Computed example of a mutant assay.
Amino acid sequence: MHEGAFHSIEMTAESNLSRAMTNGKKQQPESKGRKITLKMARNALKVTVDGKRRLDLSNMQITTFPRCLLKLADVDELDLSRNLLQRIPDSIDQFINLRWLDLHSNQLEELPTSIGELQGLLYLNLCNNRLTAAGLPTEVGQLRKLRSLNLGMNQLERLPSSMGALRELQELGLFNNLLTHVPEFLDRLPHLQKLNTSCNPIAGPDNSRDLDPIARVEFLYVVDMDWLCEACHKRCSLELKKLGRLGVATGHVRAKPAFSGLVSPNSVALDEQELWR
């Protein structure tokens, strides 16, 4: 083969390699997640006890906010929890009737400033995401009717001072974050009854108040163990083993069947066999 041909092939190979390296990130396959159609969304519509329209798309493996939801922007409640969402679009402000928004257990690193336009919002759950102080806009303070706000299990180092305007706030979850102190403006919120700041690097006593064991249950969320990081997965596995040794966890201890008002001959025989042994 002619020397020039070899040179041409070599240059072409180098060019292709350079192009591949430059566009490497674009060529990597991206996880598209589950695609939600308008028909699916309409089928997920429910009516609450008090007659409100609720759109429940929780635990659907959604990675991108479905654009088709904008055609259902008149709903009162929106549940997108336990998905894989990384961002909420600015168009969230079109859901002007929202009173209840649940986004817990996603991968959100920031909220759009347009979140402040949801003036009728009463309940906002952002627990178990990746929010930092930079990702929590000051516009959150515009949600003047907000009564319950859950920011637990994020990466918040501080809170925007604008939250001092949330005069109707009754419940605030800040557990499992990176807060080093409790903002003073929280003490000036007249209706704040429940405040959970546990598991933060705060110096001094635990600032959580009015949280009995029953109240703490509202901050627990069931997620697939496959979604947990290695450390959390190991910790949960150890806890399950402890429960198994106590005879509580299912699958580890064989529970005897309960017969209401009846005595099972087989169960009596088994008890006697255990006694003989």
Rank of each mutant, 00 (worst) to 15 (best):
D90I: 03
P160T: 00
K256I: 13
D79L: 13
V217S: 08
H233K: 14
S267M: 10
D56V: 09
D226I: 00
S198D: 14
L57V: 03
G164Y: 01
L228F: 02
A41L: 03
D206C: 15
Q155A: 12
V217C: 09
D50K: 02
D76W: 02
L85S: 06
E274T: 07
N177P: 07
N154T: 11
R53W: 03
D187N: 14
L17M: 10
M11N: 14
L38K: 06
T180Y: 01
L121C: 08
P205E: 07
L169Q: 00
M40Q: 14
Q142Y: 08
R19M: 12
L45T: 05
K71P: 00
C229R: 11
Q193R: 15
G116S: 04
S264W: 11
E157L: 13
S31V: 15
D210T: 11
L275W: 06
K32F: 01
N106G: 04
R254Y: 06
R167T: 14
H7R: 15
L84H: 09
N196G: 06
L179E: 06
P190I: 00
S208Y: 00
R167F: 06
T22R: 15
N128A: 12
N200A: 12
I36A: 01
D210P: 04
A133L: 03
E139R: 10
S162D: 11
K145C: 10
S114D: 05
E218F: 05
G204D: 10
S81I: 04
V182Q: 11
K145P: 07
L189W: 03
W276N: 12
I115T: 00
H181K: 08
R235H: 02
S18L: 06
L186N: 02
L124V: 03
H104W: 11
D90R: 10
E139G: 05
T64H: 06
L179V: 03
P205I: 03
L70F: 15
L195D: 09
M60S: 07
A255I: 00
D74T: 04
K71Q: 14
V47F: 00
V140L: 15
H191E: 08
E168K: 14
L178A: 07
N200G: 09
R245T: 09
S114H: 06
N16H: 07
V182H: 03
F185L: 13
D212S: 05
V222H: 13
T63E: 15
L270I: 08
W227C: 08
D102F: 04
N97G: 13
L270Y: 07
K25T: 10
F65E: 03
T132H: 09
E3S: 12
Q27D: 11
V268Q: 10
C229M: 03
G116R: 02
D93M: 07
I62N: 05
K194F: 13
L146H: 00
D50Y: 00
N83T: 06
V248M: 07
I96L: 09
P66W: 01
D212A: 06
F219A: 13
S264I: 10
R34T: 15
A134R: 08
N83H: 06
L149C: 07
